[in-house]
Design a protein around this nucleic acid. Structure first.
Lengths: 200, 200
DNA sequence: ACTAAGTCGAACAGCATTGTTCAAGTTGGG
DNA sequence: CCCAACTTGAACAATGCTGTTCGACTTAGT
């Protein structure tokens, strides 16, 4: 007689638990990059063994977490209208995704110890390119300053976003004011300085 | 007969080794915040046991490292002339100590896991106060912008310094250009925007 | 209801780290 | 020169992590 109908599709609670694990991992790793499998399991409300049932190793889990966060990030960034005035476009970009991009930054930083450097590089490439292109368009249109490399300006934006996240997490900055504060600061850096009158 | 002259002063090579341990710890911790005692011992060219001969625990060593780095930092900052034009004073401050302050930041970040939060807070207080006072003077004199809290401006300065350090360590920024780049960026943030003509 | 899929806790081995002890060796200072 | 101070490697216990195995249990799907 033939084999008694082996299962092909994954069970519903299994895929549900995978999601819970990923969510828990995002929470834990954003807080402490070295969070253990036990920490994540507890946060997910599952047994530690269950994690290994879905991810062969910690590195594999990290990879999946990075992939999901990056995908969500990409999705949010792609939805932003980047046409029109570069300043306004940048404000829209930051306004709608700064929390997300910063979360992505935290997770990627957490994975930095466990994933190969080559993987890291290609992870940064995608999102950075989007900001970079916008900045360079702003430069060509005479809106943004051109006396510093674009890569430096991207770095500064990253750092300001990160700094704002820290300020928010330590309650020194009201989350509702964050976007305004961030955009004002970033624009102060990016805006082409008036060359009409020297400062001094 | 009386006790045969017990020693009171530390031996010369002992204090020399303490210095070597501290130097090695600074190098290791700046590179990897989780560097082990074995790592530091190897970097110092000493046996692991010797470290415990001078510092009872890892936390105690970290405390000593933080103290030394902070003292050196304080010394450098105190030597800077902070009078006169606040913009020029800030440029002098950054120009003469940005490497040092960044090193201090790295070490303090490394100690963040092992030292009590209260200790951390008072560690940040000292150096930050110096920058804060300078910024506030610049505001009173109408040179720096007043539409953001001073604490935020200090944060931004910190982040820009940190970003520059990363850029230098990854060879994307020439160390000789660093000071110019940093000061230009920081001043772009701090400078009071011209309220004569709105951007749009 | 029956069965495969999934979960769970306990227990295991392997590894790295902290911190300690000891016995032997090396070195500085009086 | 001599002794105490110092250094050292080896070995030790304790801890915490990863990754695996096992047996018992629960649940989803048909």
């Amino acid at each position: 007689m033939p084999a008694p109908t082996p299962r092909t599709t994954k069970r519903a609670d299994a895929v549900r638990n995978v999601e819970r694990i990923l969510d828990a991992a995002i929470i834990c790793l954003a807080d402490k990059p070295t969070a253990s499998m036990a920490d994540i399991a507890k946060q997910a409300g599952l047994g530690r063994v269950t994690l290994y049932g879905h991810f062969a190793s910690r590195a594999e889990l990290l990879e999946a977490v990075v992939a999901q966060v990056l995908a969500k990030n990409e999705h949010a960034l792609a939805a932003v209208d980047l046409t029109g005035n570069p300043r306004d476009a940048l404000v829209r970009l930051i306004d709608s995704s700064w929390m997300l991009t910063n979360q992505a930054r935290s997770i990627i930083a957490a994975a930095e110890d466990e994933l190969p450097p080559a993987r890291m590089q290609e992870l940064h490439a995608g999102p950075a390119a989007r900001v970079e292109a916008l900045i360079e368009r702003g430069r060509r249109e005479g809106v943004f300053r051109t006396d510093m490399p674009t890569s430096w300006l991207v770095t500064v934006i990253h750092q300001i976003l990160h700094g704002a996240a820290v300020e928010v997490s330590t309650a020194r900055l009201d989350p509702r004011d964050a976007s305004k504060r961030i955009t004002a600061t970033i624009l102060a850096v990016l805006d082409k300085p008036d060359e009409m009158h020297g400062r001094h």
